[in-house]
Amino acid sequence: TIDDAFRAIERAIQAENEGRYREALKHFLDGGEMIVTAAEKEASQKVRNLLLHKGKEVLEWAEHLAEWILE
């Protein structure tokens, strides 16, 4: 659900702030994927587009974090 997705993102932010970057990455990926999944089930085109945009933002952040971890 969207609530689960945002809880995962909150955990990711907390982990990132505490320097637990790999854990943060996992939570960002989980949250982003949950948002995209919820968007695919959404009946309203406007809400679907907003959710897809937010999911994409979260997944892009996860990608940047992963690249930073690997440096």
Rank of each mutant, 00 (worst) to 15 (best):
T1H: 07
I2S: 04
I2H: 04
I2K: 03
I2F: 05
I2W: 07
D3A: 14
D3R: 14
D3F: 14
D3M: 14
D4V: 06
D4A: 09
A5R: 01
F6S: 03
F6H: 06
F6Y: 10
F6A: 03
F6W: 09
R7T: 05
R7L: 09
A8I: 13
A8Q: 08
I9Q: 00
E10P: 00
R11I: 06
A12D: 00
A12N: 01
A12Q: 00
A12F: 04
A12K: 00
A12L: 05
I13R: 07
Q14D: 05
Q14G: 04
A15Y: 11
A15W: 04
E16L: 15
E16K: 13
N17L: 13
N17Q: 13
E18G: 06
E18P: 01
G19L: 03
G19R: 04
G19D: 02
R20Y: 05
R20T: 00
R20N: 08
R20L: 06
Y21W: 12
Y21G: 01
R22C: 15
R22K: 11
R22W: 12
E23F: 02
E23L: 04
A24P: 01
A24E: 01
A24G: 01
L25G: 00
L25T: 00
K26H: 08
K26E: 08
K26Q: 11
K26C: 14
H27T: 03
H27D: 06
H27L: 15
F28G: 01
F28E: 00
F28V: 03
F28L: 13
F28M: 05
L29V: 06
L29F: 07
L29I: 11
L29R: 13
D30H: 11
D30R: 14
D30I: 15
D30T: 13
G31S: 04
G31A: 15
G32N: 08
G32W: 15
E33Y: 14
E33S: 12
M34R: 06
M34V: 05
M34Q: 06
M34F: 05
I35T: 02
I35L: 15
V36T: 07
T37R: 15
T37W: 09
T37N: 11
A38Q: 07
A38F: 11
A38V: 08
A39F: 09
A39L: 11
A39T: 02
A39R: 02
E40D: 09
K41N: 12
K41D: 06
K41C: 10
K41Q: 10
K41A: 09
E42A: 12
E42G: 05
E42C: 14
A43V: 12
A43L: 12
S44D: 15
S44E: 11
Q45R: 09
K46T: 12
K46L: 12
K46R: 10
K46Q: 11
K46G: 07
V47C: 13
V47W: 10
R48V: 04
R48Y: 06
R48W: 08
R48Q: 04
R48F: 05
N49A: 05
N49H: 09
N49G: 06
L50C: 14
L50A: 10
L50W: 15
L51K: 00
L52I: 06
L52K: 06
L52Q: 03
H53L: 15
H53M: 15
K54R: 10
K54Y: 15
K54G: 03
G55I: 10
K56Q: 07
K56E: 04
K56F: 07
K56W: 11
E57S: 07
E57K: 13
V58W: 13
V58C: 06
V58K: 00
V58D: 00
L59G: 01
L59V: 04
L59W: 06
L59K: 03
L59T: 03
E60M: 14
E60I: 09
E60C: 12
E60W: 09
E60D: 09
W61L: 05
W61M: 05
A62S: 02
E63R: 15
H64I: 10
H64Q: 10
H64P: 00
H64C: 12
H64N: 07
A66C: 15
A66P: 00
A66I: 09
A66G: 04
E67H: 12
W68T: 03
W68M: 07
W68E: 01
W68A: 06
I69V: 05
I69S: 01
I69T: 02
I69P: 01
L70D: 07
L70V: 11
L70H: 09
E71C: 12
E71Y: 11
